[in-house]
């Protein structure tokens, strides 16, 4: 088809959708729509993982980000009842400053990417490392220490969250 393989077509379409949804996250006025566009962006990124033959990463990405974290985001935004109507109008000075800062950041990013085309892009399509079996073997042998450190970090965050939740009830009891 027009000299491109199916994979290239899929990559093009997914990239276009991912960038479009990411822009929509920023440009929609309604916070709930923003969150939903972010979920769609995550789906597109999961599609990219699939193209790289990293199925496990793709599905875990959906389970963790789309299925858990974004649901909590949605919970908070729905319960706070943020709407396009209730969003405060920003002062003109704030807007100008935000525009300038954003422009400078864009400048830095573009500058950092200058010369990126000289980098060798490793073809990932034929790699088998993303399959569950290979990933598990690597994680539990070569990268066991960082893996366990990450689990301790998560445990600490879990305990911290419970502590914050608990303190509230103690104050109420007194």
């Amino acid at each position: 088809m027009l000299g491109y393989t199916i994979t290239q077509w899929l990559f093009g379409i997914l990239s276009f959708l991912a960038i479009m949804f990411a822009l929509m996250v920023v440009f929609t006025r309604n916070p709930v729509n923003s969150v939903l566009y972010l979920v769609l962006t995550f789906f597109c990124i999961a599609g990219h993982y699939l193209l790289l033959n990293a199925q496990f990463l793709a599905v875990v990405h959906i389970v963790v980000y789309a299925g858990a974290i974004m649901v909590l985001f949605l919970f908070i935004i729905m319960l706070m009842n943020l709407n396009a109507d209730t969003e405060p109008r920003k002062h003109i000075v704030t807007r100008v400053i935000a525009g300038v800062v954003g422009g400078v950041l864009l400048f830095v990013v573009v500058g950092a990417l200058k010369g990126a085309e000289q980098l060798q892009i490793v073809q990932g399509g034929a790699s088998q490392i993303g399959l569950v079996k290979n990933l598990g073997k690597v994680l539990f042998s070569e990268f066991l220490f960082p893996f366990e450190i990450a689990s301790i970090l998560l445990l600490a965050a879990l305990v911290g969250a419970i502590m914050i939740g608990k303190r509230d009830t103690n104050i109420n009891l007194k």
Partner: peptide
């Protein structure tokens, strides 16, 4: 895991 993923999106 696909099953778990779809179930988590069902929300």
């Amino acid at each position: 895991i696909y099953l778990l993923g779809v179930v988590s999106i069902g929300v």
